[in-house]
Design a binder for these strands. Structure first.
Length: 527
RNA sequence: GCCAACGUAGCUUAGCUGGUAGAGCACCUGAUUCGUAAUCAGGAGGUCGGGGGUUCGAGUCCCCCCGUUGGCUCCA
């Protein structure tokens, strides 16, 4: 029903929150609508369902709090979450689906499949890659390195820390102090300041002001790569210069935000920085996007969305000249357009130094994560006064492209665990072949085949314990290897194998040579 | 960081209103050599997340800290 402002104020006089909404949202003299359900009514622009009879099947799922109007400085109100389905069956189905999704949670699978570990004593959000998880990461790194060589990248290595001055120049410090680990200060300096009675606050101020020097755990790899670019005179013939590194960075994420492998405090980006001329931007951005698409295609990740992150016109957190921002934003739009897939523009999603094209995927509980990213940056080259000599003999300013097709190894593998529900394709499988012997009489045959496959680079595990074959199958299925081999009397005699493949279909009495050839081909193809 | 819930062996977990830790799996030992989702028997393993307090007595109650989970906020 429609009410005018006075009526609204009257109805909601008892509720300061509603009055605040009326104060803020309504132009003087305007009315608004309320919706009624029995004796209960509330302010809402609508529309609502016409009849709550269609909402009979409800399950409340969780209770939490939210900041009033999303403002961290304001009070928190209770928020209740629930599901509604048109029928009892549909509600049951939805709840079952959510249960299934929970089983794929990478935190649960990561523990069950022994892929990674986070230790309280090491620190929140710091991932320990256990042997099986490390295999996956290494395979992914090899995979991407292969494509980097194809695309003309140069590998570099840089240290994990850099001087505060470096980050003052880049703009990371002190502006983004809140999301960095505190700086490291040299021992002698620390002692002197302490002798002088310097307080923590004073120390912090002196660092911000540049009065004292220290080191920072790197929050990003770009400043180091910039310095490699700047280490020698560059000409247009050197461009594009593509510097790649699996670089580990550290960020002080808020404790409440840390989650599994997807939101952590230390992570390794499959990072690269491309130094290009203005004319090369479009082509190079395209090359980056192509790489992202190759990766997503190989892994069968087709459920993602593309986001062009632009600056929020109302925010002051961005560095650099608005004219350059406009140019860079247009370059991103053009690149996204040429992708041929749906994309959205999102103000406020840009990096602080430039706009970006992000590839965003959802995890099992529906949270979105940014994975691959391509960012156009006019600002860092300016801040570091980077130049190259053009064909016209004049000095020019290069443009930088930051890109990371996986985003970070941690987040990517976390999402990948959920994507594959722990059942990795053969080339990524931590243990590709598990050999199970029927009895100890077949152990020698298993050992021989295992040695043969290992020689060919296959990751093999042999179970010749005295458990029954039923028990072994049960145990080993849980680890989700690509292949489960069953070796008994008939296999030994015929020099064959019986196996359950990735689809868990049984293949009996396959000649070992045939099995091996097919396995190796599958691994080589990353099928 | 904020709010809430939770934290018992490697994993999953029992333990009512405070009476002094119990199980399954995994592990170790022995027996068994067994062809498709748990062979049998025995054994070892816990300062109940950490610290303080109340009490004759704390896994159970109170406080502080650490961590996890769900949201919020944030996310270069």
């Amino acid at each position: 029903m429609e009410l005018d402002e006075d009526e609204l104020r009257d109805h909601f006089a008892h509720n300061p929150y509603k009055i605040e909404i009326i104060d803020d949202k309504l132009e003087d003299g305007d009315g608004s609508t309320i919706y009624r359900q029995g004796d209960w009514y509330d302010l809402c622009l609508g529309p609502h369902v016409p009849n709550t009879a269609t909402l009979m099947h409800v399950r409340l799922t969780s209770v939490s709090t939210a900041y009033w109007r999303g403002d961290q400085d304001r009070e928190q109100l209770v928020r209740i979450y629930g599901l509604v389905e048109p029928s009892k069956e549909a509600l049951k189905a939805t709840l079952a689906r959510l249960e299934e999704a929970k089983k794929r949670d990478h935190r649960k699978l990561g523990k069950e499949l022994r892929l990674f570990h986070v230790d309280e004593e090491v620190g929140q959000g710091l991932i320990l890659w256990t042997p099986r998880g490390a295999v996956i990461r290494q395979e992914l790194q090899d995979f991407i390195s292969h494509h980097l060589r194809r695309q003309g990248y140069s590998q570099v290595f840089t240290p994990n820390i850099g001087k505060l001055d470096l980050y003052r120049t880049s703009g990371h410090f002190p502006y983004y102090q809140d999301s960095q680990y505190p700086p490291l200060v040299e021992r002698d300096l620390m002692k002197r300041l302490s002798d002088e009675g310097c307080t923590c606050g004073e120390l912090s101020n002196m660092m911000s002001a540049g009065d004292i020097e220290g080191y920072l755990l790197k929050p990003m790899n770009c400043p180091h790569h910039v310095k490699i670019y700047a280490s020698q005179a560059r000409s247009y013939r050197d461009l594009p210069l593509r510097l790649a590194e699996f670089g580990t960075v550290y960020r002080w994420e808020q404790s409440g935000e840390i989650s599994g492998m997807t939101r952590v405090r230390g992570f390794t980006q499959d990072d690269a920085h491309l130094f290009v001329t203005e004319d090369q931007i479009a082509q190079e951005v395209l090359g980056c996007i192509e790489l992202v698409q190759i990766i997503f295609g190989t892994l069968g990740m087709d459920d993602y969305r593309v986001r062009v992150g632009l600056r929020d016109p109302d925010s002051t957190k961005y560095v650099g000249d608005p004219a350059r921002w406009d140019k860079a934003e247009q370059a991103c739009r053009d690149a996204a357009e040429s992708l041929g897939v749906a994309w959205t523009e999102e103000p406020g999603e840009a990096a602080f130094y430039g706009p970006k094209i992000d590839f965003v995927v959802k995890d099992v509980i529906g949270r979105e994560w940014q994975l691959g990213t391509v960012q156009v940056d006019y600002n860092l080259p300016e801040r570091f006064d980077l130049t190259y000599k053009g064909s016209d003999g004049e000095m020019h300013r290069p443009v930088m492209i930051h890109r990371a097709p996986f985003g970070s190894m941690e987040r990517f593998v976390g999402v990948l665990i959920e994507h594959f529900a722990g059942m990795f394709p053969t080339w990524l499988s931590p243990t590709q072949v598990h050999m199970l012997t029927i009895s100890e009489k077949h152990a020698a045959y298993a050992a021989e085949l295992a040695a043969d496959l290992r020689e060919a680079g296959v990751r093999v595990q042999v179970d010749d314990s005295d458990d029954t074959i039923g028990k072994k199958l049960r145990t080993h299925r849980k680890m989700r290897p690509a292949y489960l081999l069953i070796l008994g009397e008939s296999e030994v005699e015929g020099r064959t194998v019986t196996y359950l493949g990735p689809d868990r279909e049984e293949h009996k009495g396959v000649p070992f040579g045939d099995f091996k050839a097919q396995l190796l081909a599958e691994i080589a193809d990353r099928a």
